[in-house]
């Protein structure tokens, strides 16, 4: 049990299918408390699915997921919602509520889960917005924000309840270099300042490697490599090498499986 208290999340033998496709096949992942852990892999390997499994918006076909020492599978609905309060999540699209202002978006979790008085909520919201550098934008509507600002507000909302862990779903996708730099800095800073655990799911190699304490590399439903960023960079495994160095061909083939091209050209059957 000492291990459980050191590790915020433990995933044991996770298997998950979507239709006929196997997304995860007997995967083990450990996320230590207080660290930034990057989970990387090519697009379409189910990285977002992993986050949804951790938040139990999806349930695994087999295997266990422990969050803060609790088996998610055994939680009642009430306990599940209580556990979810420990997890903040930053969605890929930000997922701000479009009918609420920036202020109300950040205040939303507070109003739902606490009975704080209005001045108190106001103070907390401004504190969180200050942390992401957007206190001045409190009165704007989400439609008036740029993509990067949108994600920072979503981040402020994710940390509104002071969660023990924040999960980031592809935080760097579609961001300009400046916004990307700001986000990288914010993730690291929040992790250290609030002493939280961070899980960053991404395929942006450099950014993720630069802030992560530990990396998992996922492909074909399995963990193909793990370790500290430097050791992964120098890995001998060909699959890890291909991803870390961005090679177009390798164990992950450039071509989608197809019959021989010459035969197809010569009038063979398609498919």
């Amino acid at each position: 049990m000492t291990e459980a208290s050191d590790n915020f999340i433990e995933i044991r033998g996770l298997t998950f299918h979507r239709g006929d496709r196997t997304i995860f096949n007997n995967v083990d992942i450990t996320i230590p408390r207080g660290k930034v852990v990057g989970i990387m892999g090519p697009s379409g390997t189910g990285k977002t699915t992993l986050l949804r499994l951790i938040g139990r918006q999806l349930r695994p076909d087999s295997g266990q997921i422990f969050v803060d020492g609790q088996n998610l599978d055994l939680l009642s609905r009430e306990e599940l919602f209580r556990t979810r309060r420990k997890m903040g999540m930053l969605f890929q699209s930000g997922a701000l509520f479009t009918d609420l202002s920036v202020f109300e978006n950040v205040a939303f979790p507070l109003r739902i889960h606490t009975k704080l008085a209005e001045p108190m909520i106001r103070d907390i919201v401004f504190m969180k917005l200050e942390a992401v550098g957007l206190r001045g934008a409190w009165s704007l509507m989400p439609a008036e924000l740029s993509g990067g600002m949108n994600r920072r507000v979503a981040l402020a909302r994710a940390i509104a309840l002071d969660p023990a862990m924040v999960m980031y779903d592809e935080p760097f996708v579609g961001q300009d270099p400046i916004a990307m730099g700001v986000l990288v800095k914010l993730i690291r800073m929040l992790n250290d300042a609030l002493k939280i655990t961070s899980v960053v799911v991404s395929h942006d190699l450099n950014e993720t490697a630069s802030i992560s304490d530990y990396l998992y590399l996922i492909a074909d439903g399995e963990v193909i490599g793990q370790g500290e960023p430097d050791s992964l960079m120098n890995s001998d495994d060909s699959r890890v090498k291909q991803f870390m160095n961005g090679l177009s061909d390798g164990p992950v083939p450039f071509h989608y499986p197809a019959p021989d091209y010459k035969k197809a050209l010569l009038g063979g059957e398609v498919g």
Binding site: Q57, F81, R84, R85, G88, G94, A95, T98, I112
Partner: peptide, 17 residues
């Protein structure tokens, strides 16, 4: 449908609503 597409419904669930 748009709220679902932009993950607003999922994020509401994660917030516990």
């Amino acid at each position: 449908g748009l709220m679902k597409t932009t993950e607003q419904l999922s994020s509401m669930e994660m917030i516990g609503v």
